[in-house]
């Protein structure tokens, strides 16, 4: 398997899509990197290496899933004072399997790091979704949080939207967009993904 390898040495915003299935990001400077990764029905395997003190990654992964797929992301804090925030949102549309394996790794003797991850999968039908949120932390001086949610949209949210006149379909569309697209996102960059949401 051929990985796309990117070396980053300055503040950067990256946009990835379904074609970027195998990616290695090496962050080799004290800089802030934001990655928006929008995937339609595909596998993904991502490796992020924080190779310099002060390196920071904010990774936003969004998938619309129809078949059995697996997503794996590994973040390795190779240096002190490195920061990772990993957000993974998936919508499992049909009765298939969607698996997230999310690994935050802080080796021994690496200190003062922040290693966070937030994972959510919304099942539209009766798909089997799983999340493995792994924090492999081999030292004490690290701030680390994780969360994992698999389920449906909350009925209270649907009720609120419907009580303002939105049909069930429109309410779902709004919740899906809210879940799969960050508010600050320039929609022109993800027209295909947006279209796919409207087809769910």
């Amino acid at each position: 398997m051929i990985f796309m390898n990117k070396i980053i040495e300055k503040d950067t915003i990256l946009y990835l899509d379904s074609k970027d299935t195998h990616v290695v990001l090496d962050i080799n400077a004290s800089c802030k990197v934001k990655v928006y990764h929008f995937v339609i029905d595909s596998e993904s395997e991502i490796y992020i290496n924080l190779n310099h003190e002060g390196a920071e990654i904010n990774y936003y992964y969004y998938i619309i899933n129809y078949q059995d797929h697996r997503y794996q992301i590994n973040v390795v804090h190779h240096k002190n004072h490195t920061i990772s925030h990993i957000y993974n949102h998936g919508v499992n549309v049909k009765n298939n399997n969607l698996h997230f394996s999310v690994n935050g790794i802080v080796p021994r003797d690496i200190v003062h790091c922040i290693c966070n991850q937030e994972n959510q999968i919304i099942n539209i039908e009766n798909g089997k979704s799983t999340i493995c949120p792994n924090l492999l932390i081999d030292c004490y001086d690290v701030i680390s949080n994780h969360s994992a949610y698999i389920g449906r949209f909350k009925l209270e949210e649907l009720f609120y939207l419907e009580s303002r006149g939105l049909s069930r379909k429109k309410a779902y569309q709004l919740l899906l967009k809210g879940f799969l697209i960050p508010i600050e996102m320039d929609l022109k960059k993800i027209e295909n993904f947006l279209l796919e949401i409207e087809n769910i």
């Binding site: 949210e157 609120y160 939207l161 303002r164 006149g165 939105l166 049909s167 429109k170 709004l174 919740l175 967009k177 809210g178 879940f179 697209i181 960050p182 508010i183």
Partner: peptide, 17 residues
């Protein structure tokens, strides 16, 4: 409701109502 902006929500609601 996280992720859904007030303006987008209200615009849709006004259209529906």
């Amino acid at each position: 409701i996280e992720g859904v902006s007030n303006s987008e929500f209200l615009k849709e609601a006004v259209g529906e109502v």
